[in-house]
Design a protein around this nucleic acid. Structure first.
Lengths: 114, 114
DNA sequence: TCCATATTTCGATTATCATGGAAATATGGA
DNA sequence: TCCATATTTCCATGATAATCGAAATATGGA
């Protein structure tokens, strides 16, 4: 994952509505949620939701599939894990990890100083 | 960590120069790096660097300490770990973690479905 | 006190983001 | 074919972000 991709993924999640959308999609799992339902649940206009979904899609964080008249969105766990990996390396690289940090005790030992 | 704090932290990192700054600070460790050195290393104007450092500081991701005439910035690992924890919960909550995912095999078992 | 260094704040400019209504596109069913 | 539903694209608007030069603030030393 390149730094440019990381910036785009972070930017995609760095917005109240988009973070909420991603959380909903993660909770929904592989089944996904239709665009209209997302707009209704968050109380924003369909066109605004479409804009946000495009950003998430452009960042590779969500996948879309047509299902009848609806377009169903689902979370892309691979992209999220890639982002987490980059941040973990960033968080722990070259410095002793703190003891009370989840990032340290679990992830760092797993991945080493890669 | 509230959703609002998470959005602010993500937004702080979702910029080429600020992500680079944070990486440099993580590499530098507790010693930190002065504002002027950061600006010189990244090749941007001091005032621009000050703007970016203010964003990182406002998000709680960096700490600052005056050291003579310089102001030395250092990474706040606690805030970063808080962000990682939120994202980990977001990434794994309620769905079966994929096998090839770092986020899954290490962090999820550690934290459970909290 | 006076000056040089280090950083921030201010001001102006340009670019990008977020929003929703209106129109366009696509699908399914009568 | 015709219509209702679902979503996106287009358009205009207001808000926020990123940039840098210039001026202001703070520190240390002569």
């Amino acid at each position: 994952m390149t730094a440019d991709q990381v910036v785009r993924a972070l930017g995609a999640l760095a917005q109240e509505h988009r973070l909420a959308v991603f959380r909903l999609l993660v909770q929904a799992g592989a089944e996904g949620v239709a665009a209209g339902q997302l707009a209704e649940r968050l109380g924003i206009a369909p066109s605004s939701m479409s804009f946000h979904l495009a950003q998430l899609s452009h960042a590779g964080l969500v996948a879309q599939a047509r299902h009848g008249r609806s377009i169903v969105y689902s979370a892309n766990y691979g992209a999220m894990n890639g982002l987490m990996g980059y941040l973990t390396d960033n968080c722990c690289n070259g410095v002793p990890c703190t003891d009370d940090a989840m990032c340290a005790d679990a992830a760092c030992e797993e991945r080493g100083a890669a």
